[in-house]
Design a protein around this nucleic acid. Structure first.
Length: 502
RNA sequence: AGCGGCGUAGCUCAGUCGGUAAGAGCGCUCGACUCAUAAUCGAGAGGUCGCCAGUUCGAUUCUGGCCGCCGCUACCA
């Protein structure tokens, strides 16, 4: 039994869900659904990062405890993912007891292995912010937020001996050619390692809202070294060794390019320091750009997934986001493009195909579907489409996989046009054409399920099949000729409405 | 500045480990059809694959240079 353990970054509860978060989460969901279709045992993990100064401060402003503040925002992420039909298997929160145990265990292991030591951290500090700044972040030597003078401060911190891992990290790049994909980001990460690594301060005494350092309770772990560990926590690190041993080797992280350093350099080094093997794999994506600006909380262009789902439908949003934004490079993101994609591929393409086929069967075949013919040319089309799609999903390229899948939709429309079953008299010739179209729809319903699960279930139902395409098992389910015929086909309302770009 | 990436039809992007591959979808024009959500099908227009040079029998694909855009350069969600 193959295993597939995929993660999104855990999202910081200082923020509310926007399309940038949804992009990563949707891609992960689709990839996991694709693996489930192949019978893999899948563990899809997402969650929220809840410690740190910003949460503590937001809580104070709202008159809440930090936990209440975290609860409030964490819930919004869970609601967003539920709304988008994200089939996560676990939703981890860093404030959970299991996570405290894992962080303390992992870092203590690093400490015992000699990779954590105490030293003095020196830096410029803004009293109002209660935070250190890098010199480069200052504006005219002042705090970038308060524009007030900063002071030179020093405090005792624990440091992680990152510098000890340069060679071992490079050896990892050497040994695992696809440890990070796409290659452009792999190069970037390797350049970071080659450029030299300095030790990292990983604890704070100036902060209360965090996980205590087990051997020195005055300190809490600084957010990154808390947050990254979530992946191990959820796999059972520190609480369930057997479970951890089962899932960890199957681990792969999805992340945006802005956090490559932490994920692809610091985190592997921490794992090595703690003696955790093997290292996970990483799939890095770029940003969604709106008029050239990164979509993130600092931008005015952040868009709420719920608003788009209300306009496009959940599947309309899922499909157009996955189809139009290749996983890897930055990509343009616009409302007009989403609408366009929904109309051309969903309404005019799949939806209309389903509509014309079911309506012909309903009107002239007594609503009884017929079986496909074994030697149909569409069988060749579906076979090739599955092969292309599978290869693309394996490469973490949902946009390419969906394009390949939609070749079936286009070819089936052409096939109907060529044979014009609406003009044929009842009989084997007409039944063969309609059966072929129904069979093509069956296969599309399976292959497109990772992107548009709800709609594929409806296609399934309308062509008379029992159950749900999620229960199909690939690659067998993609083999031509399985639509049985004799089922009752339902011609209902259009599956996807045509949208106008307003 | 150093390192890295990108530059292919109007738009969004595939692709070429160098040779009958210059491609897809959308958009556009014309035509067909009317089962279907003014959907569908066919045909067509449109690109010196950023620029220059080199290697080669042959480069969009390799090498060097240049131009343009972007990212990273450290404890910053």
């Amino acid at each position: 039994m193959a295993r597939y353990f995929a993660t999104t970054p855990i999202y910081y509860v200082n923020d509310v869900p926007h399309m940038g978060h949804a992009y990563t989460t949707l891609n992960g969901d689709a990839l996991c659904r694709w693996r489930r279709l192949h019978g893999d045992e899948v563990f899809y993990l997402t969650g929220t990062d809840e410690h740190g100064l910003k949460v503590q401060r937001a809580a104070e402003e709202n008159g809440l405890t930090p936990q209440e503040q975290a609860d409030r925002t964490s819930r919004r992420f869970r609601e967003a993912w539920d709304l988008l039909d994200i089939a996560y298997d676990d939703f981890i929160r860093t404030t959970e007891a299991r996570h405290h145990t894992a962080v303390q265990t992992l870092l203590e292991r690093c400490y015992e292995n000699g990779y954590v030591y105490k030293d003095t951290y020196q830096g410029v500090y803004c009293v109002s912010c209660e935070a250190y700044y890098a010199e480069a972040d200052l504006t005219d030597g002042n705090c970038p937020i308060h524009e007030s003078p900063v002071e030179e401060m020093a405090e005792d911190n624990y440091f992680f001996r990152l510098s000890a891992f340069r060679d071992r990290l490079l050896a990892w790049f050497e040994a695992v050619p696809d440890n990070i994909t796409p290659e452009r980001y792999r190069n970037e990460a390797r350049a970071l390692v080659r450029g030299g690594l300095e030790d990292l301060s990983i604890t704070r005494t100036s902060l209360q809202w965090g996980i205590p350092v087990p051997w020195d309770r005055k300190h809490v772990f600084y957010v990154w070294y808390d947050a990254l560990t979530n992946y191990a926590t959820a796999a059972g690190y520190g609480t369930d060794d057997e479970r951890f041993a089962t899932w960890w080797p199957a681990c792969r992280h999805l992340l945006g390019k802005d956090i490559i350093r932490f994920h692809c350099v610091y985190w592997p080094a921490m794992l090595m320091a703690a003696g955790v093997e093997p290292l996970p794999r990483f799939h890095v994506h770029g940003w969604l750009l709106v008029s050239g600006a990164k979509m993130a909380k600092s931008s005015v262009v952040q868009i709420a997934p719920a608003d788009l789902a209300a306009d496009l439908g959940v599947d309309g949003l899922r499909y157009s986001v996955l189809r139009d934004n290749p996983f890897g490079p930055d990509s343009d993101f616009s409302y007009e493009a989403l609408v366009q994609r929904c109309n051309s591929d969903l309404a005019n393409g799949l939806g209309n195909l389903l509509q014309r086929v079911t309506s012909i069967v309903a009107r002239s075949a007594g609503s009884l579907g017929s079986a496909p013919v074994p030697e149909s040319p569409l069988g060749v089309v579906t076979e090739q489409a599955y092969a292309s799609a599978a290869e693309a999903w394996d490469r973490v390229q949902p946009s390419v996989a969906l394009e390949a899948t939609w070749r079936i939709v286009r070819e089936t429309n052409e096939y109907l046009q060529a044979h014009q079953p609406w003009k044929l008299d009842p009989g084997p010739a007409r039944d063969a054409v309609l059966g072929d179209a129904l069979e093509a729809l069956r296969i599309v319903a399976v292959l497109a399920h990772p992107a548009i699960p709800r709609s594929c279930a409806e296609v399934w139902r309308r062509i008379g099949l029992a159950g749900d395409p999620s229960q199909a098992r690939l690659p067998g389910a993609a083999i031509w000729g399985q639509y049985p015929g004799g089922l009752t086909v339902t011609a209902g309302a259009p599956l996807f409405p045509r949208l106008s770009a307003d």
